[in-house]
Write a protein that binds this DNA or RNA. Structure first.
Lengths: 260, 260
DNA sequence: CGAATATTTGAGGCCTATCAAAGTGAGTGG
DNA sequence: CCACTCACTTTGATAGGCCTCAAATATTCG
């Protein structure tokens, strides 16, 4: 077991030339925050650090003192069975908050780790709570993010429980593509750093099976991936295969922000 | 398709002798609310109605105008694949709020229906938002509930993705038992109104397979169920089988309520 | 360039699904 | 009080999707 302070040593102070560029997060952009709330939030987020790939930010069962916001790179939340099998319960792409639960829980029941080299802000819980209390919009933004996550998790249960492996894969690629905002004219292209083993742990499959289904997707002309880049030549057809409807992601931001 | 106003007709005005008894909800009891916040919430919850079993409160894709709080009886959230397979993404027992997403989304992407005859409060979204804005504790309680749901959903993905059918079943029974507060001295006994088909839709299995695994659990002496009552004679052993640890449910209420 | 990591291929087996039908129990109406 | 119906549970046999074990090939990175 690595002690918490050892974990912190994994962080390297980050040289930040343009802080503005780093705070392009879903929290920042969700359309809820006022100008002054953005300022308050930005000040809290200037402590970004760089973290290597496959580094635990939270270990299962750990006390969690901070909210982790992923500014660049990818990360995930995961849990493991007694038998040692791992299942991801969320995947974070640049802009996502990883462990909203830490806002109110001292113990999470899951771990969080980077999947690539990443830039991460550790926002101390007390700081986050103070922000939320002093700036109602920030509190509402946290709630909004949490509700989005629940919607995504609900879709994951549908995939895990009731969809065939190739449908899960298709649905997942569609979700990722939509969340990354990578689509244009029924096509999508984006950097894709995940290993097939990670995909397997996300979809509840074995890496071997994931491999075979990716090949099947390639053979259908629905996926072209070379050199860690994903190209989806026919998003509509992939969506049909995965039963994907982007509505649940609420990518346009909250429609309902008015409080009478 | 049944129009929304038709749905409302399914509600029957409820005679409420003792309103206090009806508001024993997780929202009410989570330990966050002040006295006056409780009063404000109670006033909003006096409109409880009775709903028959297997009645949709929200249909998939519907606009949702109200938060549904289940006072008695059981309900669930569900989604279906294009092929028509159904997967539950949440189960609501007395005291649960069913569709927190409706706080901020006009469209949910899942349905919500009763599983038994139930008493339900329909709290209009605007009313809920006003309550949350005027009483910070109520807003925080909503956030807290949403984070709990998130934790439960994360556990479900672990079950659906990585646990054998009998482990899923064991884990689910343990979760239910804990949420119902039915445990004492390593035993648990509670009313259990679910059909095996509903359990199957929750665990991502077929009803036939659920039946066989329940029999296996009976043969192991871990489950005794007769007459819609569930008796778990050895909770510890069932937990070990399901890999269940109640921590994620945060049944003690939030440890962190202070805002400095 | 060499070691470690990731992807790909092959063969066999298990868990769960599917299809079909019998048994059980609660509620209804005569 | 007893047929009758409907829904749920249970049983049996077969099939299929995905897993497991094993190893070869390709790619990444120091």
């Amino acid at each position: 077991m690595i002690a918490a302070h050892r974990l912190m040593q994994a962080f390297n102070r980050l040289d930040v030339d343009d802080a503005e560029e780093l705070i392009d997060t879903r929290l920042w952009n969700c359309g809820i925050l006022s100008i002054e709330e953005r300022h308050a939030l930005r000040d809290a987020m200037l402590t970004a650090k760089s973290v290597p790939a496959y580094t635990d930010l939270i270990r299962e069962g750990d006390d969690t003192g901070s909210l982790f916001i992923v500014l660049s790179g990818w990360a995930c939340r995961y849990a493991t069975t007694n038998a040692g099998a791992r299942q991801l319960s969320a995947i974070m792409v640049p802009g996502d908050v990883g462990n909203l639960g830490s806002l109110m829980f001292d113990r999470l029941g899951y771990g969080m780790r980077t999947l690539t080299k990443a830039t991460v802000v550790a926002l101390p819980r007390q700081r986050a709570l103070t922000l939320a209390a002093e700036h109602p919009g920030i509190g509402r933004a946290f709630t909004w993010l949490s509700l989005i996550e629940n919607a995504i998790l609900s879709q994951w249960t549908l995939s895990l429980g009731r969809r065939l492996s190739i449908e899960r894969l298709a649905h997942f690629l569609c979700e990722l593509s939509a969340r990354l905002g990578a689509e244009r004219d029924n096509q999508s292209r984006f950097a894709f750093p995940l290993t097939q083993e990670t995909i397997a742990d996300m979809l509840g499959l074995t890496p071997i099976h994931v491999n075979r289904k990716i090949q099947q997707l390639r053979a259908s002309g629905l996926v072209v991936n070379v050199d860690r880049t994903m190209w989806l030549p026919d998003v509509a057809r992939l969506r049909a295969l995965g039963g994907f409807d982007p509505g649940y992601l609420h990518l346009g931001g909250p429609q309902i922000t008015q409080i009478i």
